[in-house]
C-alpha cells in the first residue's frame, strides 16, 4: 500500500503559477471573474503564498506553492461530524462531497487554510462546462472542497498497471500541478518506498514541513532555498 506524498523544491520554483492554473483545469474549479475575485470569492486548491523579504532596491519576493499538505494526523478529520473528510488508506485526506453537510468545522480546524467552501453555485459561462474533467465531480453549493493529490489519477494509474499485469512504479502517478511545472519543482510519489524519488528528497538536509511543530505530520515537504 502506498503512502502518497509530495516534495516542492523552492530553489526550482519560479512562482510562474502554472501549477495553480493546471489544478484549476484538472479539478473543475470554476473561474471567478474580476468582480468576484475582488470580493474575495475566487478560490484555489493550490495557492501561491507570497513571501516578501527586504525592502527598497533589496526587496525579494518569492512564492511558496501550497496545496493541502495531507497530514498524517489531520485536525480536519477529527472535527468532521459526518465522516465526509477522512484519511484514506493511502494517506490522502479525502473529501466526500456527497456526505459533506457544509458545517465548515474542518475549515476552522485546518491550520493550513487548505479547504474552501462553495458559498455559491459554481458558474460555467458559455461552453466552459463542456471542458470540465469527467473524472472529477462538479461540487454543488454548500460543500467544502480541497486538494485531493489528484486521487483520480491514482485510481486510473492503478487500473492501467493492473491491466498491464504489473505493480505500480515510481512515476506512474503525477498530479496536474507536478505535471505542469516547467521547472520540475514538484515531485510526487510513495513516501513508504525508500527508493522513490520523493522519499530520497525528504532525506535532503534542506527538507522541511510547514508548521511541523503542530504535530499534524504533513506529507508535503519543501526543500528550502540555498543561499
Amino acid at each position: 500500500m502506498s503512502r502518497w506524498g509530495m516534495v516542492i523544491d523552492l530553489d526550482r520554483c519560479t512562482g510562474c503559477g502554472a501549477c495553480m492554473a493546471a489544478c484549476h483545469q484538472e479539478n473543475n474549479l470554476p473561474a471567478a471573474g474580476p468582480e468576484e475575485s475582488s470580493r474575495d470569492r475566487a478560490f484555489h486548491w493550490l495557492r501561491l503564498l507570497p513571501e516578501v523579504s527586504g525592502s527598497g532596491a533589496e526587496v525579494k519576493v518569492r512564492y511558496v506553492p501550497q496545496p493541502c499538505v495531507h497530514c498524517d494526523d489531520p485536525p480536519c478529520v477529527r472535527v468532521c461530524p459526518v465522516h465526509a473528510t477522512y484519511l484514506s488508506e493511502e494517506g490522502i485526506v479525502a473529501q466526500i462531497y456527497s456526505r459533506c453537510i457544509g458545517c465548515r468545522y474542518c475549515m476552522a480546524a485546518c491550520p493550513y487554510n487548505a479547504k474552501v467552501f462553495n458559498w455559491y453555485e459554481p458558474e460555467w459561462p458559455g461552453d466552459l462546462k463542456r471542458s470540465t474533467n469527467p473524472d472529477v465531480s462538479l461540487r454543488p453549493k454548500g460543500v467544502v472542497e480541497k486538494c485531493t493529490f489528484c486521487h483520480h489519477r491514482v485510481v486510473k494509474a492503478r487500473e492501467e498497471t493492473r491491466a498491464a499485469g504489473r505493480e505500480m512504479r515510481d512515476g506512474d502517478v503525477t498530479p496536474a500541478c507536478a505535471e505542469s511545472c516547467p521547472a520540475g519543482a514538484i515531485v510526487f510519489g510513495d513516501l513508504d518506498d525508500p527508493t522513490s524519488r520523493v522519499s530520497e528528497m525528504t532525506r535532503n538536509p534542506r527538507a522541511f514541513r510547514l508548521l511541523a511543530d503542530l504535530g499534524t505530520k504533513p506529507k508535503v515537504y519543501y526543500l528550502a532555498e540555498r543561499d
Binding site: 477522512y86 484514506s88 493511502e90 479525502a94 466526500i96 462531497y97 472529477v136 485531493t148 486521487h151
Partner: peptide
C-alpha cells in the same frame, strides 16, 4: 471499501 476508490 475506501470511499476514494469509487467517489470522485
Amino acid at each position: 471499501n475506501d470511499c476514494l476508490l469509487c467517489h470522485k
